[in-house]
């Protein structure tokens, strides 16, 4: 039953991708086109989700935003979880000076206000630059959890057994430690997708993320703030919820698949 949820998540995510990437092919309007005959229109046959104040097609805009947000969210999540896994296992497994140095770095990043730093580093407008910047501020807590788990796994008898066989450190991590972390990392990555999309929206709102005229789901929701029309923001928010839900269902499913004892004890 659990894996059915994972499958549902995967199907939902594929549908969202299809909508975001194949949708523009059937949409009568481009995302950057302006219809000077329709400002702030209700949804109609001509504009499926209506138009914005400046006459842009909401359907096309939302899909454009979804593409940006999907790309940023998924890449940032994978990157941040990956960094967390590498740093966490290295610190936990090696211990000593390396552990202290890495955890000191993580603590430093935790106390720095991320928005300030991002503002200082303000990426030059290209959206792919947002991915490493977002990821740089999202890996620390996970890395600490991974480190703690690695430290306890390091003392497990099967890890000791491997070390006493002469298996090298990195290989022990890959073969004996990381499989135990896989389910944690799957859940973490799926949660981070949502966080990254929302953080990107926040940055964009402050003018530090995706710059106009380009849009993301975050900027669309932000534009809805104070606006008289609710449907542009509503459509973006709905899609956002759908993406986060799909990714979380998938993460849940992955966690169960990665646990071979699920039907054991």
């Amino acid at each position: 039953m659990r894996t059915r949820r994972g499958a549902a998540g995967a199907v939902l995510l594929v549908l969202v991708f299809l909508l975001a990437f194949a949708g523009p092919l059937v949409s009568p309007w481009g995302w950057d086109e302006t219809d000077f005959t329709a400002f702030r229109q209700e949804p109609s046959a001509r504009h499926w989700l209506g138009t914005t104040q400046s006459g842009r097609d909401v359907f096309a805009l939302t899909l454009r935003g979804a593409r940006r947000s999907l790309a940023i969210g998924l890449l940032a999540a994978v990157l941040s979880t990956g960094v967390a896994a590498v740093i966490g296992t290295a610190a936990g497994f090696a211990g000593g000076a390396l552990d202290r140095a890495l955890m000191w770095g993580a603590d430093l990043l935790l106390v720095l206000p991320p928005f300030l730093v991002v503002a200082l580093l303000a990426p030059g407008g290209a959206w792919p630059m947002l991915v490493p910047v977002l990821a740089a501020f999202m890996w620390m807590l996970t890395a600490k959890v991974v480190r703690a788990m690695t430290r306890s796994l390091r003392e497990r008898e099967y890890v000791l057994a491997a070390r006493f066989l002469g298996v090298s450190g990195p290989r022990v991590i890959v073969r004996h430690v990381s499989p135990r972390l896989a389910s944690l990392l799957a859940v973490d990555a799926s949660l981070t997708v949502g966080v990254a999309i929302i953080a990107e929206g926040g940055l964009s709102y402050l003018g530090l993320g995706v710059r106009p005229p380009d849009v993301s789901l975050g900027t669309l929701v932000a534009e809805g703030h104070g606006a008289a029309a609710t449907w542009p923001a509503g459509a973006a928010a709905g899609l956002l919820v759908l993406i986060v839900l799909a990714v979380n269902l998938l993460g849940d499913g992955l966690r169960d698949v990665l646990d071979p004892l699920r039907d054991g004890r």
């Binding site: 497990r156 099967y158 000791l160 073969r175 135990r180």
Partner: peptide
């Protein structure tokens, strides 16, 4: 080496 608890000394995965 052979450990005490075979459940703990074999990687369950």
């Amino acid at each position: 080496v052979v450990f005490q608890d075979p459940a703990a000394s074999l990687n369950p995965r």
